[in-house]
Write a protein that binds this DNA or RNA. Sequence first.
DNA 1: GACAAACTGTAACACATGTTACCTTCCGCT
DNA 2: AGCGGAAGGTAACATGTGTTACAGTTTGTC
Lengths: 218, 218
Amino acid sequence: MLKDNQLEVLLHEKFQYVFEADLLKEILKYGTFREIEPDKTLMDIGDSISQMPLLISGSIKIIREDKSGNELLLYYLEVGDTCAMTINCTMGKKKSEIRAVTEELTKLIFIPVHKMDEWLVKFQTWRTFILDSYNTRLMEAIDAIDNLAFHNMEQRIYKYLWDKALVTGTQVLRLTHAQIANDLNSSRVVISRLMKKLEKDGKIKYDRNQIEVKKAEI
Amino acid sequence: MLKDNQLEVLLHEKFQYVFEADLLKEILKYGTFREIEPDKTLMDIGDSISQMPLLISGSIKIIREDKSGNELLLYYLEVGDTCAMTINCTMGKKKSEIRAVTEELTKLIFIPVHKMDEWLVKFQTWRTFILDSYNTRLMEAIDAIDNLAFHNMEQRIYKYLWDKALVTGTQVLRLTHAQIANDLNSSRVVISRLMKKLEKDGKIKYDRNQIEVKKAEI
DNA sequence: GACAAACTGTAACACATGTTACCTTCCGCT
DNA sequence: AGCGGAAGGTAACATGTGTTACAGTTTGTC
């Protein structure tokens, strides 16, 4: 746990240009801070949610799964993001349709539901934040649809790697072909085959457990 | 054009349980009514939007297109819906990422942008409505992702037909294989092939320009 | 009735992706 | 050093989907 003043410093650092001063105070007052290790499931399909998370640092994978257990990575949440799903899960008392897994060490503030609605009335910046969040998520979902509908697996792999490089802030990734296959709902053999092709085309370079992504056209 | 009192009757009929009385009055005062024929493009990719539509009757197809002109039907808007895209396009002054085409004769009320934000502060029912809209759209986008990621073309065709039956309110549809191919970003031959199979399995029945959808498991 | 256009059926083939099986290489452990 | 497991390479094949080409049928129009 952080001391209050440390949390305050963090909040200001990340959100001073997003939220007005009074709102920052309220967040500090009513929010609950939590720090979560990498690869922890924050929320699973079917869970009910009573608090809304606000991402302070780290990143979170949002994953969709069908009944047979096939998975698909939808998008990442990063600093300053919130989970749009949660917004309505909390407001509408519905169950989660997705799984959220921390990608790295992640710091969050949880906001109680009743404050969410209250702040929509009181704070212009909160309204903008919530609507922006929804919109960003909707765009990301549509981006995911584009990938599936209009791009082949080779393009999807490259985009997956590049996105991951952006999120983690490094072009050298530590991950295996099997992990990629899992996130893209494909199979390891297919990934290996196409990785070879991507390397031949100079778009990536890789060794066991390590992939370097180069900037390239999709 | 409708006379004011006719519009009032319509609005009440559709929204009396959604919006509080004062809000209905404001909508009548500041909204602009429009009636639009089937198969008209309401909004195209790259358009700027300055008004938010509220669907009174009819239905609207939301379509995504890539740079090469390949199309994909995302979902339908129905009575009581609004276009979530628009919400942020108006607020954030961004351009549309999708195309909206009327499926049938459609009645709409357009709301000026500045009222949107004002009402978020003043009316609880408006807040709920906007957040619900976003959430519904996000769920529909995720549903579209599920289809693409986890279902084969045969299942996608059946779901497409069943959804269309729900939207239009009849299990007998007037459409061609080529139209289906277009909406699913496939090709006519593929659709014909799989339609044959669906018919053999008793899930549909069809003739030239006409398809009867039967209730079946996906 | 003749004709053109639209709609559907079908075959043959190309290509992308998934599956299975087995092999090699690398790495950590004892 | 030897072992076992994890990661990756490769081949052979199965399947799903897209493409091209052409034929047959229906529909509307003159």
